[in-house]
Amino acid sequence: MSKTITVQDLNVYYGDFLAVHDVTMDIAAKSVTAFIGPSGCGKSTFLRTLNRMHEVLPGARVEGKVLVDGDDLYAPGVDPVTVRRQIGMVFQRPNPFPTMSIRDNVLAGVRLNNKRLPRSEAADLVEKSLRGANLWNEVKDRLDKPGQGLSGGQQQRLCIARAIAVEPEVLLMDEPCSALDPISTLAVEDLISELKDSYTVVIVTHNMQQAARVSDRTAFFNIAGTGKPGKLIEYAETSTVFNNPSVQATEDYVSGRFG
């Protein structure tokens, strides 16, 4: 189910502004890859190009290739909607649909794509996804309650359940824990380690301990200054990046000496 991602010479633009410059990297299947770097260095922008979510903003475009198991996401004729069905995303702020119950939130991806599910299959899918997101035991008695009535950490796990309910091949996470308390963060981190068994996970984080805890490989992005494009500085095994980085800037950043 999980797939490898190959990025070749990717430039990301907002209008005329070059936001991310010349990124090339391979992301292995069934692994967790973390993107770290200072604010504004383009890691979230880059993450969003991996499922064509950056196109939601007017004027955003890319040059280069993103291959998922060899298929170029930016080849002519590729429908971004189809791409996003295969590559799910979890956002910084929990965003369950306010008009839907917990159950409907989990089923949203399936239902809104006009697939009809028999009642029993729907119930199975809800339970499976919520168990997958470590949320089942907390909400199994109130599936008909509104999703926004949950705590922030529960809402974020509900969003993860919603994302994995459509069985994507890759799961992108944009700072999924930055709005959560340490206990909820721990729950989500445990979840990420479990998700690795079946999905390719890419996570953007500002928390370097988190990157060190959950990821197999780490990419460090940096920016030369305001108005300059973000660049991929170093991409290696997580232990190498944190213990024995090959670039001085990486060492400065992970040791907290700048940024």
Binding site: M53, V56, V81, T82, R84, R93, G109, L112, N114, A163
Partner: peptide, 26 residues
């Protein structure tokens, strides 16, 4: 919130369905 539209897009929901089933009900 734009968050809700993005959440729907990220699930592979088309723009039209997002408007009809997510934006307008909200």
């Amino acid at each position: 919130p734009a968050d809700l539209r993005e959440a729907a897009y990220a699930l592979g929901v088309t723009k039209f369905v997002t408007i009809v089933k997510v934006v307008i009900p909200t």
